[in-house]
Design a protein around this nucleic acid. Structure first.
Lengths: 129, 129
DNA sequence: CTTGACCTTCCCCTGCACTGGAAGGTCCAA
DNA sequence: TTGGACCTTCCAGTGCAGGGGAAGGTCAAG
């Protein structure tokens, strides 16, 4: 199948497909006599995997790592487990950071709506921050 | 004061100070006879404001907006209130998104540690994702 | 035979907040 | 006078995941 068909079948763009190839996530496909990329149907499930991985918040570099293990003939199970563990603790950290920031901003915002401007000092720009 | 002193006094770098000037957050300072930037001491409180704003999660573009209002002779109170409101709801949205993602990833990770590899289909790369 | 949709490679652009480094000028102490 | 620490400008790159668009080749229908 041609690149446009594949893009439509997988809900992505031809730009992204060429980019994935360049980035080592997709193998270089065969070419037709006139140089058009000619993909085998199996490539669709590979792209489905890429999309599932992305929606789990993995980066393309991490996904490439998994694919390389699989392409090397191994099962990437343990590597995937490790990535998921790391991703989870990273998410916990991010959420905690954002919650703390939310607390700070909420306080600033509360002050800003209840306190009177109270003679802002122009030199310090704004007393609400 | 020279740029290096100012950088040290405010805990930033000379690179960042020149960048802020270029980005319109700092006014162009006077120059010495040989072209060195020569900052007045008041600039320190402006930089303190920039740092406070950054730690509240505002972007440099937003901070520039506030500074421009102040430099135009107005008090930026209302604008700041609006920015904080927007920032707060944006944080709430981000936190909700991350929590949802966390739920997904936690489920994937739980499956990955409890389920046996169970004949992964190499064509779909990894059954855990 | 031409039109329009598709394909190719190529390079630059996006947002964010800087950082690194090169090439050259200046200041101060030994 | 020399050396090192400072300063200047300018250009390029970082990470992330592509997007935009130019210049040109190809395919099928009318």
């Amino acid at each position: 199948m041609r690149i446009g068909e594949l893009a439509e079948a997988t809900g992505t763009t031809t730009k992204a497909l060429r980019f994935y190839e360049e980035a080592g996530l997709l193998p270089s496909p065969d070419r037709t006599g006139t140089g058009y990329r000619d993909y085998p149907p199996e490539i669709i499930s590979r792209l489905a995997f890429i999309r599932r991985s992305q929606s789990a918040g993995l980066t393309l570099a991490q996904i490439r790592g998994i694919l390389q293990i699989r392409d090397g003939g191994q099962a990437p199970c343990e590597h995937v487990q490790e990535l998921l563990r790391a991703r989870l603790s990273d998410l916990d950290r991010q959420i905690a950071e954002l919650k703390e920031l939310r607390g700070t901003v909420a306080q600033l915002q509360a002050d800003a709506t209840t306190l009177e401007p109270a003679r802002c000092d122009p030199a310090s720009v704004c007393r609400y921050l």
